[in-house]
Amino acid sequence: MSMKRQKRSREERAYSRGYQAGYKGKSKDFCPFDALQARSSWLNGWREGHVDQLHGLVGVAGIHNLKDLR
Results as ranks from 00 to 15, higher is better:
Pro32Arg: 02
Ser16Ala: 05
Ser2Gly: 12
Met3Pro: 05
His55Phe: 13
Pro32Tyr: 03
Gln53Met: 11
His50Val: 10
Phe33Ala: 07
Ala21Asn: 07
Asp34Pro: 09
Met3Gly: 14
Ser40Ile: 04
Ser16Lys: 01
Ala38Thr: 09
Leu43Ile: 00
Phe33Met: 00
Val51Gln: 11
Leu54Arg: 13
Leu43Val: 06
Leu57Lys: 06
Ile63Ala: 14
Glu11Cys: 06
Val60Ser: 08
Gly18Lys: 07
Lys67Gly: 10
Gly56Asn: 07
Arg47Met: 09
Ser16Asn: 01
Asn44Lys: 15
Trp42Gly: 03
Ser2Ala: 14
Tyr15Gly: 04
Ala14Ser: 11
Glu11Gly: 07
Arg5Gln: 08
Lys28Met: 12
Val51Glu: 08
Gly18Asn: 07
Phe33His: 04
Val51Trp: 03
Leu54His: 03
Arg17Asp: 04
Gly59His: 12
Lys67Tyr: 03
Asn44Leu: 15
Met1Gly: 00
Asn65Ser: 08
Asn44Arg: 15
Glu11Gln: 11
Met1Thr: 10
Phe30Glu: 13
Gln53Gly: 04
Val58Asn: 00
Leu43Asp: 02
Gly56Arg: 11
Gln6Arg: 11
Phe33Thr: 01
Lys4Gly: 09
Ala61Gln: 09
Ile63Tyr: 12
Lys24Tyr: 10
Lys7Ser: 11
Lys4Asn: 06
Asp29Cys: 04
Gly59Glu: 00
Leu69His: 07
Leu69Ala: 12
Arg17Tyr: 05
Tyr19Ser: 01
